[in-house]
Simulated scan of single mutants.
Amino acid sequence: MIAAGLLLVAVGGVDLVRRLVPGRRIVAFVIAAAVLVALSAGADAIVAGLLAVAVAAIWTWVVPESGPARAGLWPVGLLGVAAAACVVVAPARPSPGLVGAVWVAYGPREGLSVDVLFLVAGCLLFLLESGNAVVRIALRAEMGERVAPSTGDAPGTLRGGRLIGPLERILVFALTLAGAYTLLAAVLAAKGIVRFPEISRDGEGGDRAEYFLIGSLVSWVTALAAAFLVWWGVGGV
């Protein structure tokens, strides 16, 4: 499970660095990679940490910040399969390495493995900016040039997705794990109600409705998949 967590932390972290650090990214990438490798070494998972850094480096090439992805949705699918395989093959350990020992001694919740903590942190990081990349890839795959290449927005419509999307995915992720399905349904319905006036002004092409449906569904599925991954991992502890 620690491998899945490190994998998602690395990919989510590199996308967040690309978003928040406009200059000197190489230095930021190196520092982030060094911190991740140090944490993985402290958790007796140095090999998994090095592989996660390598996967994150490949991710930055196949999933650029703007424009179409070089391999479509394949990198996203392969990343999901790899994370799920890591959870199945290597379940959570009771106290992995120095980091695990410190967590067991001083952690706020007894019985919660540090491996699970890494997995949850990885999912949250991935849902922030990498989730936007997944949605952008899906939109460009289905809508082509009707989507702005740099932002993934439909031209002149439905702005704000780069901020709303991460908040929405975190809410879906948290409410799903908490089992608050009624509140989850209310949140999803509220988004449709808020966007309805803008979608109702759609022309004959239906671009706004298509953009909203594709973006929302892909965003929700990504968050639900992350929640299922954590649920699956915790269930195997």
Rank of each mutant, 00 (worst) to 15 (best):
V135W: 02
V135H: 02
V135D: 00
R136L: 03
I137H: 10
I137Q: 05
A138F: 03
A138P: 02
R140H: 09
A141N: 04
E142F: 14
E142H: 12
E142G: 06
E145M: 07
E145S: 15
R146T: 02
R146C: 01
R146Q: 08
A148I: 01
A148T: 02
A148P: 03
S150V: 14
T151N: 13
T151Y: 05
A154P: 02
A154F: 02
G156L: 13
T157Q: 10
R159K: 07
R159V: 05
R159A: 11
G161F: 10
G161N: 14
L163A: 08
L163K: 09
L163F: 06
L163P: 14
I164K: 09
G165I: 00
G165T: 03
P166Y: 08
L167V: 12
E168F: 08
R169C: 13
I170M: 12
L171V: 13
V172A: 13
V172E: 03
V172G: 11
F173E: 02
A174L: 14
A174F: 08
A174C: 10
T176G: 09
T176F: 06
A178K: 04
G179H: 12
A180F: 15
A180Q: 09
T182R: 10
L184D: 02
L184E: 02
A185G: 12
A185K: 03
A186N: 09
V187M: 13
V187H: 08
V187Q: 06
V187T: 08
L188V: 14
A190Q: 08
K191V: 04
G192Y: 09
I193M: 15
V194A: 15
V194F: 10
R195Y: 15
F196Y: 13
P197F: 10
S200T: 10
R201A: 11
R201S: 09
R201G: 02
D202S: 07
G203M: 01
G203K: 00
G203R: 00
G203N: 06
G203P: 06
G205A: 11
R208T: 08
R208D: 15
R208V: 04
A209R: 15
A209N: 05
F212R: 00
F212Q: 06
L213M: 13
L213D: 01
I214E: 02
G215L: 04
S216W: 10
S216I: 00
S216P: 05
L217A: 08
S219M: 07
S219V: 01
W220Q: 13
V221C: 13
V221K: 00
V221N: 01
T222I: 02
A223D: 05
A225T: 15
A225G: 12
A226W: 03
A227G: 11
A227W: 07
A227R: 01
F228K: 08
L229C: 12
V230C: 07
W231H: 10
W231N: 08
W232I: 01
V234P: 02
V234S: 04
